[in-house]
Design a protein around this nucleic acid. Structure first.
Length: 255
DNA sequence: ATGCCTTATTTCATAAGA
């Protein structure tokens, strides 16, 4: 079974590329983030045999899951989900082929001294609580997507450039560690080029071509799933060419 | 990198992204 996660930076703008990528890559389950629409273009992916669950409300955020191996127990958001000020469309849980899948788009945090940073930490803490409850009834679980946190200094192109910035702070990294403490394993994908498993490169100034990126998209899975992984890679081809997302998909094959 | 690109929208300007 092939699983994937991809921050598409607008499913509307990315639809032609998404459809081509689905046809070429043939994933069974795909978690999407930053769909940026209240009206997911379901028909275009249903033609390829996918069922769709989407949670979006317009201009910002938005998550979805596509599956061609069943799609049940759809949960938009989670209990007591923190908001800014109201809950946003950042989490979607579904069950596919016996695996509980969560597609998440963690708040950016903006700057360390902003209210949005506190919101980010509160949201991650809330996610942890929700997943702790989920794990009681779903022993095979994956939570993947854009976490907006680089787990280690090696996960950014230049740690010196991030001093004082969000995405690399101790509290953000502690929030990820708290998720792993639930029994979730960080499935690190292999880069197809270069030495770092970056998943995001800024659009500007040739960042992608200089491999000045970040690993902020993550695939966390229970040991029962992670132990079955036969391959995991970052599809940098999807970051190339005309009108790409600024994130590349992570593809994970389960034996 | 100091949003130098890109997105959608309350559009020809703005807010947000990381």
């Amino acid at each position: 079974m092939r699983l994937a996660t991809w921050n598409v930076n607008s499913v509307t703008a990315r639809l032609p590329r998404l459809v081509d990528w689905l046809a070429a890559t043939k994933p069974d389950i795909v978690c999407l983030q930053e769909t940026k629409t209240a009206t997911f273009p379901a028909a275009s992916v249903e033609e390829l045999g996918y069922q769709v669950a989407a949670h979006g409300d317009g201009r910002w955020n938005g998550v979805a899951v596509l599956s061609r191996v069943g799609l049940d127990e759809v949960t938009a958001g989670f209990p007591d989900e923190p908001g800014f000020p109201g809950a946003e469309t950042r989490a979607l849980g579904v069950t596919c082929a016996g695996v509980r899948m969560w597609s998440v788009y963690v708040p950016n945090g903006r700057t360390v001294d902003s209210d949005h940073y506190g919101y980010k930490l509160a949201w991650l803490a809330g996610l942890r609580t929700a997943l702790e409850h989920e794990l009681a009834t779903h022993p095979k679980l994956v939570v993947c997507g854009d976490f907006n946190v680089a787990p280690a200094d090696s996960d950014v192109w230049d740690p010196a450039a991030f001093v004082g910035a969000t995405h690399v702070t101790g509290p953000e990294r502690a929030a990820l560690a708290a998720l792993r403490d639930l029994g979730l394993v960080d499935v690190v994908p292999r880069p197809l080029k270069g030495s770092n498993p970056f998943t995001y490169w800024d659009y500007r100034a040739g960042m992608f071509h200089q491999d000045m990126g970040m690993r902020i998209d993550l695939f966390y899975a229970t040991a029962s799933v992670a132990g079955e992984v036969t391959d995991a890679y970052i599809d940098r081809e999807a970051r190339k060419g005309k009108a790409p997302s600024d994130h590349a998909p992570i593809v994970v094959d389960i034996g």
